[in-house]
Design a protein around this nucleic acid. Structure first.
Lengths: 144, 144
DNA sequence: TAAATTTGCTTGCAAAATGCAAGTGCAAAT
DNA sequence: ATTTGCACTTGCATTTTGCAAGCAAATTTA
């Protein structure tokens, strides 16, 4: 995992250097919609990420300011991962991927309905989820 | 490059199986905004993709219906690659990545201005570019 | 309190993907 | 007729991935 490998000055290319792989956005998805926040939570996701890859991706996302690693309020044995505002701001990107896939791929009916609902008023959806994710940040801050 | 490797039924995961790598979206970017359409065009992009990787990505994108490979109108020696409607529909995804990166990374002033302009009325921007890309399809169809 | 389990990793190794340089075959230009 | 351009393919070294196992600290169970 090289850090300073900037392939070009194109912001799309730079963004892909951060999350352009098969796993990073899935971790972010789990943090956004999956109510997951620990290493083991991510491991349990359907895609079956390998332990070493998960560790390296979490490290990379943290180094790039997308997520942060915190003490878990429930136990010293646990760590808690959380999206930063920068990570939360990736919501529109992920939403558009979902909207695209809803057009071209099959998926469970309930998810399809959710996406179609979100598509009707994207801004509202983004604001709603963003609000919920930022509340999570505040909750944990006042807990500690 | 395995084709039928579907890691899960999550549409985000399936989408990443198609374009979740460091190069595919850059090729799509070149087709959308770079006025590029040949193998050599893509090779010349700043990021410096390797020839074999480019070939494998073009193949993958074609197999997944994102791009199509056509005879070039100018010469038999050339091939022309073009976005399909499915590929054109990735514009909102790429646009949101640009918008995200505009918030967090530095970039040339003119590009920054373009992104800020697009962000003011996303729908308008998407419709405008989509229209231009679809006109390209019709142009070439009537040429042949 | 000792043993087993959970948690979040790291390590070793084989397999796959990537990057680089060189080579190939066809078309077009000189 | 020869050189150049285009779109690749091939070979090989390096890097990344995937899988299984191991490990230390914290927690739970007996």
């Amino acid at each position: 995992m090289e850090l300073n490998k900037k392939r070009s000055n194109c912001p799309l290319s730079c963004s892909l250097d951060v999350f352009g792989d098969k796993w990073s956005l899935l971790i972010i998805r789990d943090l956004m919609f999956g109510n997951k926040c620990t290493y083991n939570d991510f491991l349990k996701s359907d895609e079956g990420i390998a332990t070493n890859i998960l560790a390296s991706r979490l490290k990379g996302l943290e180094e790039n300011g997308i997520i942060e690693k915190l003490a878990h309020p429930d136990s010293k044995a646990k760590k808690m991962y959380r999206l930063t505002p920068k990570g939360i701001d990736l919501l529109p990107v992920i939403m558009e991927v979902y909207i695209w896939s809803e057009k071209y791929y099959e998926m469970p009916a309930d998810l399809k309905a959710t996406i179609q609902e979100a598509r009707k008023d994207k801004e509202k959806f983004v604001k709603q989820i963003t609000k919920e994710l930022k509340i999570k940040i505040k909750e944990k801050k006042s807990d500690s």
